[in-house]
Structures are given as C-alpha cells and as structure tokens.
Amino acid sequence: MKLYADRVPVALRQLITDLLVVVWVYLWIRVALWIHDVVEKLAVPGRKLESAGSGIADNLADAGGKVGRVPIVGDELTAPFTGAADAARSLADAGQQQQDFVGQLALILPAVAVGVPLALVLFMWLPMRVRWIRRAGIAAAVRNDPAGQDLLALRALASQPLTKLAKLGPDIAQSWRSGDAAAVSALAALELRELGLHNR
C-alpha cells in the first residue's frame, strides 16, 4: 500500500492536502463545540424562570396554608393563594420546557455544523484519496515486471489525454500493439508519472 507519491511535488501536494483536511475537520469540531456552548447559555433564562416560579409557588402555597388556618374565612382566603401558586408553577414548567428546547437545539445545531464538512471529507476527499492509494499501490507493485509495464502502457493508452499521447509519437498505439519495448516503456512511464511514481 502506497500512501504518498514518489515524486516530491506530488507527495508534497498530497501531504499538504491531508494536513489541510485534518485541520478542516478539527476546526469544524471546534466550531460545533462553540455553537453547543453558545446555545447552552440560552438555557440560563429558563433555569432562572423555573427556579423563580418554583420559589414563588412554594412561598404562595406556604402562605395559603397559613391563611387557611384563620377561623371562619380561612378557606375563602386560601383560594387566591392557591391560584397564584398554580400560576407560578406554570411559569416554572415554561422555564423547564425552554431548557428542554435549548438542550435539543444544543445537540442539533452542532451536529449540522460538523456534519456537512465531514460529509464533504467522507464523500469527496476520502474516496479520491483511497482510489489513488489503490491505483498507486498496484502500479508500484507491477512497474518492474514486463507484463506490468504492458498493463501500465495499456492503461495510459486508455486514460491519458490525446495531447500527452501524441507527444510520444504519432504511431504510439501501433508501436505498443507491435510490442515495441521503447513504446511500452514510454507509455508506462507516462502512466506512472501521472500517479506521481518513478519508473523503476
């Protein structure tokens, strides 16, 4: 398995690209964590609202209990305190719901923020990199074998642009068909050069 090309410019380009991809992924993970922290701060008002609502509800229920002990009119005086305590509990519930919503948002937004860049890496860069590693590994394994040179020459004839093939001579395909060793070597070298490999 070959991870990097033999030729320095190609290998350097591959190494720089790989490092940029690692930095890209790291930065987006940091952005996702930052988004999570920022969104989590939105839950603070909900926590305060829940705490205040619960405190007010408890105080009103306690006051209603004390007023309820007043002889004759105690039950009538308790009703407003009970209603106010229920309203305060509703505020506390609203604070809790706001916290739940912010908690869900703190999971979804960072996932989206990191998911799109990671998808670009997984579905664009990684397949191209793996394809090159496979092609270069096979080419490096067969480049010293005469039959492998012939396969590389055939690959060059099938995939290289006509302008590059024409530079090797107008009858390069005929020379390859007739088994001309110089033509086979030139075509194999062209294919290896395209992959960034030396013709050993």
Rank of each mutant, 00 (worst) to 15 (best):
L126P: 02
N199W: 08
V121N: 01
R155T: 05
V114F: 06
K2D: 08
W176S: 01
G46T: 09
L118P: 07
N199C: 03
Y26S: 00
G179S: 15
A173D: 02
L118K: 06
M124K: 11
H36T: 10
A189R: 06
V31P: 05
A141I: 06
A188E: 09
P9A: 10
T17Y: 11
I108V: 15
A11K: 09
S175N: 02
W28L: 05
L91M: 13
A87R: 15
T78G: 01
H198C: 08
G137Q: 06
D62W: 00
D62V: 03
I72G: 01
Q97G: 15
N59L: 08
K167Y: 00
D6W: 08
M128F: 01
A88K: 04
I72H: 03
A57S: 14
T163I: 11
N59A: 13
A94E: 13
L3D: 11
A147I: 06
V73W: 12
E50D: 03
P127H: 13
E40H: 09
L187W: 00
F101C: 07
A188G: 02
A140K: 10
A57E: 11
V112N: 02
G95S: 13
V112Q: 08
A136L: 10
R200L: 08
H36E: 15
K41F: 07
G55K: 06
V38E: 13
P80F: 07
Q98A: 04
L20T: 02
N59P: 01
G169H: 02
L157T: 00
W28Q: 10
Q97S: 15
P146E: 01
K2Q: 12
L49K: 05
D75C: 01
L27V: 03
R129T: 03
A88W: 04
D93A: 15
D6M: 09
L20D: 01
A85I: 13
A119Q: 11
L165Q: 01
W132V: 15
R193E: 15
F101D: 07
V25K: 02
Y26T: 10
A166W: 00
A11V: 05
L27F: 05
W176D: 00
N144S: 10
I29C: 09
I172M: 01
T78V: 13
V70P: 06
R7S: 07
R30P: 01
P110I: 00
L33M: 14
I35S: 13
V114T: 04
F123K: 15
K41R: 12
Q14R: 11
A5M: 11
